[in-house]
Protein backbone atom coordinates (compact mmCIF):
# COMPACT_ATOMS: atom_id res chain seq x y z
CA UNK A 1 0.00 0.00 0.00
CA UNK A 2 1.58 3.23 -1.12
CA UNK A 3 -0.67 5.05 1.33
CA UNK A 4 1.90 4.76 4.03
CA UNK A 5 4.72 6.55 2.28
CA UNK A 6 6.01 9.90 3.46
CA UNK A 7 8.28 11.73 1.11
CA UNK A 8 9.93 15.08 1.76
CA UNK A 9 11.90 16.74 -1.02
CA UNK A 10 14.15 19.77 -0.56
CA UNK A 11 11.97 21.14 2.17
CA UNK A 12 12.86 24.64 3.34
CA UNK A 13 11.03 26.70 5.91
CA UNK A 14 11.68 30.28 6.92
CA UNK A 15 9.58 31.74 9.73
CA UNK A 16 8.06 35.19 9.22
CA UNK A 17 10.67 36.72 11.54
CA UNK A 18 13.42 35.51 9.20
CA UNK A 19 14.60 32.50 11.23
CA UNK A 20 15.58 29.70 8.89
CA UNK A 21 14.24 26.62 10.66
CA UNK A 22 14.70 24.08 7.88
CA UNK A 23 17.34 24.55 5.18
CA UNK A 24 17.07 21.65 2.82
CA UNK A 25 15.48 18.45 4.04
CA UNK A 26 14.89 15.35 1.96
CA UNK A 27 13.96 11.83 3.02
CA UNK A 28 11.58 9.04 2.13
CA UNK A 29 9.87 6.86 4.69
CA UNK A 30 8.16 3.75 3.37
CA UNK A 31 5.39 1.47 4.52
CA UNK A 32 5.65 0.10 8.04
CA UNK A 33 8.91 1.80 8.88
CA UNK A 34 9.48 3.14 12.35
CA UNK A 35 11.64 6.23 12.18
CA UNK A 36 12.95 8.58 14.84
CA UNK A 37 13.83 12.16 14.04
CA UNK A 38 16.33 13.30 16.63
CA UNK A 39 18.42 16.39 17.14
CA UNK A 40 19.35 19.11 19.60
CA UNK A 41 16.88 21.71 20.84
CA UNK A 42 16.08 24.05 18.02
CA UNK A 43 17.31 21.67 15.32
CA UNK A 44 13.97 21.94 13.52
CA UNK A 45 12.22 18.75 14.62
CA UNK A 46 8.93 20.34 15.61
CA UNK A 47 8.88 22.56 12.53
CA UNK A 48 9.35 19.48 10.38
CA UNK A 49 6.53 17.60 12.10
CA UNK A 50 4.15 20.51 11.65
CA UNK A 51 4.75 20.27 7.91
CA UNK A 52 3.73 16.63 7.70
CA UNK A 53 0.17 17.54 8.56
CA UNK A 54 -0.01 20.79 6.66
CA UNK A 55 -0.04 23.16 9.65
CA UNK A 56 2.94 24.94 8.19
CA UNK A 57 3.46 25.27 4.49
CA UNK A 58 6.93 24.94 2.99
CA UNK A 59 8.81 28.04 1.88
CA UNK A 60 10.28 25.80 -0.81
CA UNK A 61 10.21 22.10 -1.57
CA UNK A 62 7.53 19.46 -1.60
CA UNK A 63 5.89 16.91 0.67
CA UNK A 64 4.07 13.81 -0.56
CA UNK A 65 1.97 11.59 1.64
CA UNK A 66 1.06 8.36 -0.10
CA UNK A 67 0.12 9.18 -3.66
CA UNK A 68 -0.79 12.79 -3.03
CA UNK A 69 1.28 15.91 -2.88
CA UNK A 70 0.36 17.97 0.16
CA UNK A 71 -1.83 20.78 -1.14
CA UNK A 72 -4.89 22.59 0.07
CA UNK A 73 -7.16 20.24 -1.85
CA UNK A 74 -5.65 17.06 -0.43
CA UNK A 75 -5.37 18.40 3.11
CA UNK A 76 -8.51 16.75 4.58
CA UNK A 77 -7.54 13.33 3.26
CA UNK A 78 -3.95 13.76 4.39
CA UNK A 79 -5.00 14.80 7.87
CA UNK A 80 -6.97 11.59 8.17
CA UNK A 81 -4.05 9.52 6.87
CA UNK A 82 -1.51 11.15 9.16
CA UNK A 83 -2.52 10.84 12.80
CA UNK A 84 -0.64 13.41 14.84
CA UNK A 85 -0.17 13.05 18.59
CA UNK A 86 1.01 16.25 20.24
CA UNK A 87 3.56 16.52 23.00
CA UNK A 88 1.15 17.94 25.58
CA UNK A 89 -1.97 15.76 25.82
CA UNK A 90 -3.82 18.71 27.36
CA UNK A 91 -3.74 20.32 23.94
CA UNK A 92 -5.27 17.27 22.38
CA UNK A 93 -8.01 16.45 24.86
CA UNK A 94 -10.47 19.31 24.73
CA UNK A 95 -13.87 17.66 24.98
CA UNK A 96 -15.90 17.16 28.20
CA UNK A 97 -15.30 13.40 28.40
CA UNK A 98 -12.84 10.86 27.05
CA UNK A 99 -15.59 9.34 24.93
CA UNK A 100 -16.47 12.65 23.28
CA UNK A 101 -12.82 13.27 22.60
CA UNK A 102 -12.17 9.97 20.91
CA UNK A 103 -15.41 10.36 18.93
CA UNK A 104 -14.44 13.87 17.78
CA UNK A 105 -12.45 12.74 14.74
CA UNK A 106 -14.86 10.05 13.48
CA UNK A 107 -17.82 12.43 13.86
CA UNK A 108 -15.97 15.04 11.84
CA UNK A 109 -15.39 12.42 9.18
CA UNK A 110 -19.17 12.12 8.98
CA UNK A 111 -19.34 8.47 10.05
CA UNK A 112 -22.71 7.06 11.17
CA UNK A 113 -23.43 6.66 14.89
CA UNK A 114 -22.92 2.89 15.16
CA UNK A 115 -19.59 3.06 13.38
CA UNK A 116 -18.44 5.91 15.63
CA UNK A 117 -19.41 3.90 18.70
CA UNK A 118 -17.46 0.88 17.44
CA UNK A 119 -14.37 2.89 16.57
CA UNK A 120 -14.30 4.63 19.94
CA UNK A 121 -14.61 1.29 21.68
CA UNK A 122 -11.86 -0.29 19.60
CA UNK A 123 -9.49 2.65 19.93
CA UNK A 124 -9.90 2.86 23.71
CA UNK A 125 -9.46 -0.88 24.10
CA UNK A 126 -6.35 -0.84 21.98
CA UNK A 127 -4.65 1.61 24.35
CA UNK A 128 -6.09 -0.12 27.42
CA UNK A 129 -8.31 2.80 28.42
CA UNK A 130 -11.78 1.35 28.00
CA UNK A 131 -12.62 2.00 31.65
CA UNK A 132 -11.90 5.74 31.28
CA UNK A 133 -14.51 6.48 28.65
CA UNK A 134 -16.85 8.59 30.77
CA UNK A 135 -14.16 10.45 32.72
CA UNK A 136 -13.38 14.11 32.11
CA UNK A 137 -9.80 14.55 30.81
CA UNK A 138 -8.62 16.64 33.78
CA UNK A 139 -9.20 13.67 36.09
CA UNK A 140 -6.70 11.46 34.25
CA UNK A 141 -3.08 10.82 35.19
CA UNK A 142 -0.28 11.76 32.80
CA UNK A 143 0.07 8.24 31.41
CA UNK A 144 -3.67 7.85 30.95
CA UNK A 145 -3.87 11.21 29.19
CA UNK A 146 -1.16 10.16 26.79
CA UNK A 147 -2.86 6.87 25.96
CA UNK A 148 -6.22 8.55 25.47
CA UNK A 149 -4.57 11.15 23.22
CA UNK A 150 -3.28 8.28 21.09
CA UNK A 151 -6.78 6.76 21.01
CA UNK A 152 -8.23 10.04 19.71
CA UNK A 153 -6.00 9.61 16.70
CA UNK A 154 -6.40 5.83 16.30
CA UNK A 155 -10.18 6.22 16.05
CA UNK A 156 -9.70 7.84 12.65
CA UNK A 157 -7.74 4.76 11.52
CA UNK A 158 -4.71 6.62 10.24
CA UNK A 159 -2.02 4.93 8.14
CA UNK A 160 0.82 6.97 9.54
CA UNK A 161 1.36 7.89 13.18
CA UNK A 162 3.36 11.00 13.95
CA UNK A 163 4.24 11.57 17.58
CA UNK A 164 6.06 14.47 19.19
CA UNK A 165 8.03 13.34 22.25
CA UNK A 166 5.76 10.39 23.11
CA UNK A 167 7.51 9.48 26.38
CA UNK A 168 7.86 13.05 27.63
CA UNK A 169 6.75 13.44 31.25
CA UNK A 170 5.86 9.80 31.87
CA UNK A 171 7.00 7.79 34.85
CA UNK A 172 9.17 4.73 34.07
CA UNK A 173 6.27 2.30 34.27
CA UNK A 174 3.96 4.39 32.09
CA UNK A 175 6.85 4.85 29.66
CA UNK A 176 7.37 1.08 29.36
CA UNK A 177 3.63 0.58 28.92
CA UNK A 178 3.50 3.14 26.15
CA UNK A 179 6.53 1.67 24.39
CA UNK A 180 4.99 -1.81 24.46
CA UNK A 181 1.82 -0.32 23.00
CA UNK A 182 3.64 1.49 20.20
CA UNK A 183 5.67 -1.61 19.37
CA UNK A 184 2.41 -3.39 18.59
CA UNK A 185 1.21 -0.89 16.00
CA UNK A 186 1.70 -1.81 12.40
CA UNK A 187 1.42 1.78 11.18
CA UNK A 188 4.24 3.72 9.65
CA UNK A 189 5.59 5.57 12.67
CA UNK A 190 7.50 8.81 12.93
CA UNK A 191 8.71 10.02 16.33
CA UNK A 192 10.69 12.93 17.57
CA UNK A 193 12.34 12.37 20.90
CA UNK A 194 15.20 13.06 23.25
CA UNK A 195 14.58 9.67 24.84
CA UNK A 196 17.23 7.86 22.84
CA UNK A 197 16.75 4.57 24.65
CA UNK A 198 13.16 4.53 23.50
CA UNK A 199 14.37 5.32 19.99
CA UNK A 200 16.80 2.41 20.13
CA UNK A 201 14.00 0.13 21.30
CA UNK A 202 11.31 1.16 18.85
CA UNK A 203 12.96 2.53 15.74
CA UNK A 204 14.99 0.75 13.13
CA UNK A 205 15.94 3.96 11.41
CA UNK A 206 17.14 7.32 12.70
CA UNK A 207 17.30 10.70 11.01
CA UNK A 208 19.48 13.30 12.71
CA UNK A 209 18.59 16.92 12.16
CA UNK A 210 21.23 19.53 12.80
CA UNK A 211 20.66 23.24 12.22
CA UNK A 212 17.86 22.63 9.78
CA UNK A 213 19.60 19.97 7.74
CA UNK A 214 19.65 16.18 7.64
CA UNK A 215 23.03 15.31 9.12
CA UNK A 216 22.60 11.56 9.03
CA UNK A 217 19.98 9.06 7.96
CA UNK A 218 20.46 5.34 8.51
CA UNK A 219 19.97 2.25 10.69
CA UNK A 220 19.63 3.18 14.36
CA UNK A 221 22.48 0.99 15.62
CA UNK A 222 24.90 2.25 13.03
CA UNK A 223 24.17 5.87 13.84
CA UNK A 224 24.31 5.39 17.59
CA UNK A 225 27.76 3.78 17.27
CA UNK A 226 29.18 6.86 15.57
CA UNK A 227 30.23 8.89 18.60
CA UNK A 228 31.87 11.64 16.60
CA UNK A 229 28.70 12.28 14.60
CA UNK A 230 26.54 12.28 17.72
CA UNK A 231 28.79 14.69 19.61
CA UNK A 232 28.82 17.06 16.64
CA UNK A 233 25.04 17.22 16.76
CA UNK A 234 24.87 17.76 20.56
CA UNK A 235 23.70 14.17 21.08
CA UNK A 236 25.11 11.10 22.77
CA UNK A 237 24.75 7.34 22.77
CA UNK A 238 21.62 5.90 24.38
CA UNK A 239 22.35 5.07 28.02
CA UNK A 240 21.93 1.37 27.35
CA UNK A 241 24.84 1.54 24.89
CA UNK A 242 27.13 3.40 27.26
CA UNK A 243 29.48 1.68 29.67
CA UNK A 244 28.11 0.65 33.04
CA UNK A 245 28.98 3.39 35.57
CA UNK A 246 29.14 0.91 38.46
CA UNK A 247 31.09 -2.07 37.14
CA UNK A 248 32.90 -0.18 34.38
CA UNK A 249 31.97 -2.80 31.83
CA UNK A 250 31.32 -1.83 28.24
CA UNK A 251 27.68 -1.75 27.12
Amino acid sequence: MSHHIVEVRNLRHVYPDGTVALRDISFRITHGESVAIIGANGAGKSTLLLHLNGFLSPTAGEIRIGDYPLTKATLPEIRRTVGMVFQDPDDQLFMPTVYDDVAFGPLNLGLPGMEVEQRVKDALEKVGAGHLRDKPPYNLSGGEKKRVAIATVLSMSPDILVMDEPTDGLDPHARRQLMALLKDFSHTKIFTSHDLDMVLDLCSRVIILHEGEVKADGPALEIFRNEELLAGCRLEKPLSMQGCPVCGGKG
Binding site: N53, F55, R79, D90, F94, G105, T152
Partner: peptide, 14 residues
Amino acid sequence: RAERIHMAMLARGF
Protein backbone atom coordinates in the same frame (compact mmCIF):
# COMPACT_ATOMS: atom_id res chain seq x y z
CA ARG B 1 -2.07 26.92 23.70
CA ALA B 2 -5.16 28.01 21.78
CA GLU B 3 -3.16 27.69 18.58
CA ARG B 4 -2.00 24.20 19.52
CA ILE B 5 -5.53 23.13 20.41
CA HIS B 6 -6.76 24.48 17.11
CA MET B 7 -4.09 22.45 15.34
CA ALA B 8 -5.16 19.35 17.25
CA MET B 9 -8.73 20.01 16.18
CA LEU B 10 -7.78 20.51 12.54
CA ALA B 11 -5.70 17.34 12.65
CA ARG B 12 -8.88 15.49 13.43
CA GLY B 13 -10.91 16.93 10.64
CA PHE B 14 -12.55 19.89 12.40
